[in-house]
């Protein structure tokens, strides 16, 4: 088994008194995986990433991030974490100067990789100032920088927001290529389609807690994703959605058939009937 990267044990968190944002949170994430963190707005996805990186402190419970208590924000931990926030800060530097200033903080930073990633994202001039770039271009630069830091843990909050369609595909290719047995990636997003064929584990937050955390392999073993012309209502059906293609269904995979995971459908199934899903996966 790969190294444990994140352990969250019974964590409670609140921004304001009497309004619990996260309660009884438990999670274990291992290296060598790309995890998709899904949830509705306001469920605490970004807050979870902030808790992991030490930007906010839990009210109770324990968090272990790559062997460190994140609230200490020790340099030994921070140099092994790259956090890409949803909203990017104003940086009044050129790409070249940004690299010159921030790369020395990351001992495993690879300048050639950075150049290669920029090239793949079609960002050709390192003399461009970051604050003059569009939000999408700026995001590409920071994604490229984050991947080139070669940190053990990469946390990305809505990384594909603002990226154009070819860049989203490029992002998936680059991230898939950058993952190693020593690295762990957590991507929080609303745009589940952007994570198609990229992630190998899905975490779903609902009702301020983690209700689902399973590897893709497990999901397709236990659940069957199918499209049928008729709205079949047998006992195995967990969730049905009426679409142009027909009735998209999530069923119990009692016959061990292979099917292609539909993340959006899975998310809706979990949110709609989390009790049944929980029971099914605890078997």
């Amino acid at each position: 088994m790969n190294a444990k990267m994140i352990t969250i044990d019974n964590v409670e968190f609140t921004y304001k008194k009497n309004t619990q944002l996260l309660s009884g949170l438990n999670l274990e994430l291992y290296a060598g995986h790309i995890h998709g963190l899904l949830g509705k707005n306001g469920e605490g996805k970004s807050t979870l990433l902030k808790l992991i990186s030490g930007l906010v402190f839990p009210n109770s419970g324990v968090i272990d991030t790559i062997g460190f208590n994140p609230i200490k924000r020790k340099p030994e931990m921070l140099r092994e974490i790259f956090f890409l926030p949803e909203e990017l800060p104003q940086i009044l530097l050129s790409i070249e100067k940004y690299e010159k200033i921030y790369a020395p903080f990351y001992p495993k930073f690879n300048s050639e990789q950075f150049d290669q990633y920029l090239k793949e994202f079609e960002v050709y001039s390192k003399h461009d100032k970051l604050d003059k770039l569009s939000q999408g271009q700026k995001k590409k630069v920071l994604i490229a920088f984050g991947l080139a830091t070669n940190t053990k843990l990469l946390l990305m909050d809505e990384p594909t927001n603002g990226l154009d369609i070819p860049s989203k595909a490029q992002f998936r290719r680059m991230v898939a290529a950058a993952i190693t047995e020593e690295r762990c990636l957590v991507i929080s997003t609303h745009q589940v389609r952007d994570l198609d064929s990229l992630i190998d584990g899905i975490i779903i937050m609902e009702g301020h807690e983690i209700v689902f955390n399973e590897p893709i392999e497990n999901i397709t073993n236990k659940l069957l994703f199918k499209v049928s012309e008729n709205n079949e209502k047998d006992e195995t059906v967990i969730y049905t959605e009426n679409t142009i293609q027909g009735f998209c269904q999530v069923c119990e995979n009692i016959s061990n058939k292979d099917s292609r995971l539909d993340i959006e459908l899975l998310f809706n199934a979990v949110v709609t009937d989390k009790k049944r899903i929980k029971q099914l996966f605890s078997k």
Partner: peptide, 19 residues
Amino acid sequence: APLNNSISATHILLIPSSN
């Protein structure tokens, strides 16, 4: 001053150096 703004505070606080 950046610590007053959550976006830039994220950037400052996560620079790999101790407090």
